[in-house]
Simulated scan of single mutants.
Amino acid sequence: MVGLSVKQATATLQQLGLSADIREEIFSEETKPGLVLASDPGGGGKVSVNGTVHLTLSKGPERITVPDIAGASVDDAIKAIKEAGLIVGTSTRAFSESIAKDSVVNTSPEIGTPLRRSSAVNIVISDGQALGGKSYVGLFSDQALNEINDAGFTVNTIYAYSESVAVGMVISQTLPTTIKAGQKPVVTIVVSQGTAYAYVPDGLRGRTLKEATAAIEGLGLKVAKPKIIGTRKNKVVINVSPAEKTKVKPGSTVTLTLG
């Protein structure tokens, strides 16, 4: 009988003048749902004429879903895990922007994962918001660096150009989510280097080539070989290309016309 479907087992027993009765269904890791796991009496056993053979069917593998304990207190989470037929594994802590301190952030395996009975569920417990949720965006990087270090964090500083945030001010920050034993959590701040562009200086017209060149190169720009027009002996700048006050990329070339 073992391994047969109910229909197959019933048909086989009827050929022997016997009837089938489903006694119970139990979980089995090896046998598919609906198939016979055992019979009473077993194969080769004696049964009276027109008697009944009691069958035990498989319900297939037993799987228990990890309960939804996100946001629950640690005590309630442990209770829910145990009541589900699972066991509590390790617990770690992590920062969370949305889960209150000392409440459960998530689990591993994830909530909703089907597991065998008595499998371990690890829980992650909230340590609240890193830095208490304080934002340093728009503040000077020196202040951010000092306060973050004083709070027990390590600062990772990245520099980036910005057209809207002044030099030395914080453009953005990334707070840590994980906490590793023996290591300071890392806060990353992006600090403005100011604009990525330069401006062709104003007031170049009327200056000598030497004066204009010094002003242009002082901004990280280059000066092309000047164009010379006219017969004037002491020539000065009469035209600039690109025009004065034009926004250009660093290293761009400016052409002067002297006359």
Score class of each variant (00 low, 15 high):
residue 50 N to K: 14
residue 42 G to D: 06
residue 49 V to A: 13
residue 25 E to I: 02
residue 4 L to R: 11
residue 14 Q to S: 13
residue 26 I to Q: 06
residue 38 A to I: 01
residue 21 D to K: 13
residue 58 S to L: 03
residue 53 V to T: 01
residue 49 V to M: 12
residue 51 G to H: 05
residue 55 L to I: 08
residue 16 L to W: 14
residue 36 V to F: 02
residue 18 L to A: 04
residue 19 S to N: 14
residue 47 V to G: 07
residue 20 A to E: 00
residue 8 Q to H: 13
residue 4 L to P: 02
residue 44 G to F: 05
residue 8 Q to I: 14
residue 28 S to C: 06
residue 7 K to I: 14
residue 37 L to H: 02
residue 5 S to D: 11
residue 13 L to E: 00
residue 44 G to H: 11
residue 34 G to Q: 10
residue 19 S to C: 05
residue 24 E to F: 04
residue 51 G to L: 07
residue 20 A to C: 10
residue 61 P to K: 13
residue 34 G to W: 09
residue 20 A to Q: 00
residue 45 G to H: 04
residue 28 S to K: 08
residue 15 Q to P: 12
residue 27 F to D: 04
residue 43 G to N: 14
residue 53 V to N: 00
residue 37 L to I: 13
residue 15 Q to N: 15
residue 12 T to Q: 10
residue 57 L to R: 00
residue 11 A to E: 15
residue 46 K to N: 07
residue 4 L to D: 04
residue 37 L to E: 01
residue 40 D to K: 03
residue 55 L to S: 00
residue 22 I to V: 15
residue 37 L to K: 03
residue 23 R to P: 00
residue 34 G to D: 07
residue 7 K to Q: 14
residue 32 K to N: 12
residue 7 K to L: 15
residue 27 F to L: 08
residue 6 V to H: 07
residue 59 K to H: 09
residue 34 G to S: 10
residue 31 T to R: 07
residue 59 K to L: 14
residue 28 S to H: 03
residue 57 L to G: 00
residue 26 I to G: 01
residue 62 E to V: 10
residue 21 D to H: 12
residue 12 T to N: 09
residue 48 S to I: 11
residue 22 I to E: 00
residue 7 K to C: 08
residue 41 P to W: 04
residue 17 G to I: 10
residue 51 G to F: 06
residue 27 F to M: 09
residue 17 G to T: 05
residue 33 P to S: 13
